[in-house]
């Protein structure tokens, strides 16, 4: 740790407060839309939201632009690099815990709540609430079908989901090839493998959209079709958002690579994006097994 003398402490920065204003406008805009959605005027909310998003995008370009400039000016030493690595690792851990909350909810309803509603155990919920209710998983018949009409069927895991699994697993391999190519400074291969990774992600998302359309239009499997649809769409939906974000990050990384931002030795931006991509991949494998197959 003898390198500590040169640890880079940035001067004052306007980006955090801009980020705060952007975040505040985005979220309070969304809340305003939701408060007014039944009967009220939602245009104020949408305006706040849109301005907030614009501010956030401006901030992201500016803040990451600063970081890229500082990095290329050689201000970051090995210790700074370790701070970034710790930061990214713990951020991914927080994402893991966010998904855990939803996986936990899935386990709870599937193995406890639904069987209890169906009369299992010592409780009397079945006779007191919906005595005709029979529990099953996937839950096609909800306790109160008038309020929550259940889905007719669920997605077959051995069709699109299997294909999507292959796509994402392949993309984890291609991004590793890109990483090896960066280390060897083989610029053409880096671009090729990164572009292929992004393409695989995009195809995955396309299939996911197709699957959602099928679920909504042909299976009546929707967000409001009871707890199966709830857990299915929330888990796969949040995952899809993360794939989208990951693909955007990788695209930015590809563009930065083409501008010569990364060297064979210093490319933590790329590595962080790759970690994120692998994380998204692992979540998908859990989804495929626990949501689609089981």
């Amino acid at each position: 740790m003898a390198t500590q003398q040169s640890y880079y402490v940035p001067e004052q920065s306007k980006w955090p407060i801009i980020a705060t204003v952007g975040l505040f406008l985005t979220l309070s805009g969304l809340a305003t839309v939701m408060v007014n959605k039944s009967g009220g005027d939602t245009s104020t909310g949408w305006w706040m939201f849109s301005i907030g998003v614009a501010v956030m995008v401006y901030m992201l370009f500016g803040w990451f632009g600063n970081v890229a400039k500082e990095s290329m000016a050689g201000l970051y030493n090995a210790q700074m690099d370790r701070s970034f690595r710790w930061g990214m690792s713990w951020f991914i851990f927080s994402e893991v815990m966010f998904f855990s909350a939803f996986f936990g909810a899935l386990f709870y309803v599937r193995f406890l709540a639904v069987p209890w509603l169906a009369g299992e155990g010592e409780g009397t919920m079945n006779t007191l609430l919906w005595s005709n209710f029979e529990g099953s998983w996937p839950l096609l018949h909800n306790p109160d079908p008038k309020v929550f009409p259940g889905p007719e069927a669920v997605i077959n895991p051995w069709s699109i989901p299997l294909l999507n699994t292959v796509l994402l697993l392949t993309s984890s391999v291609t991004i590793t090839f890109a990483h090896h190519a960066i280390k060897k400074n083989d610029r053409d291969k880096v671009k090729l493998w990164l572009a292929l990774t992004i393409l695989l992600g995009a195809v995955f998302l396309g299939f996911q959209v197709y699957e959602y359309i099928e679920a909504y239009h042909e299976l009546n499997l929707t967000l409001d079709s009871g707890i199966y649809g709830t857990t299915f769409f929330m888990l796969t939906g949040f995952h899809g958002m993360h794939v989208t974000l990951g693909a955007i990050i990788l695209t930015v990384i590809l563009l930065r690579y083409m501008k010569g931002h990364f060297s064979a030795e210093h490319h933590f931006g790329f590595e962080a994006a790759a970690w994120y991509w692998h994380f998204v991949d692992v979540v998908w494998v859990c989804l495929f097994v626990l949501v689609y197959i089981m």
């Binding site: 939701m34 909810a105 639904v114 509603l117 909800n142 929550f148 709830t230 769409f233």
Partner: peptide, 18 residues
């Protein structure tokens, strides 16, 4: 509240205790 899911609604198979 806003999108009709049933995490905490027993009618849809969820559970307030969740």
């Amino acid at each position: 509240i806003n999108f009709g899911t049933s995490f905490f609604k027993a009618e849809g198979g969820g559970d307030p205790v969740l």
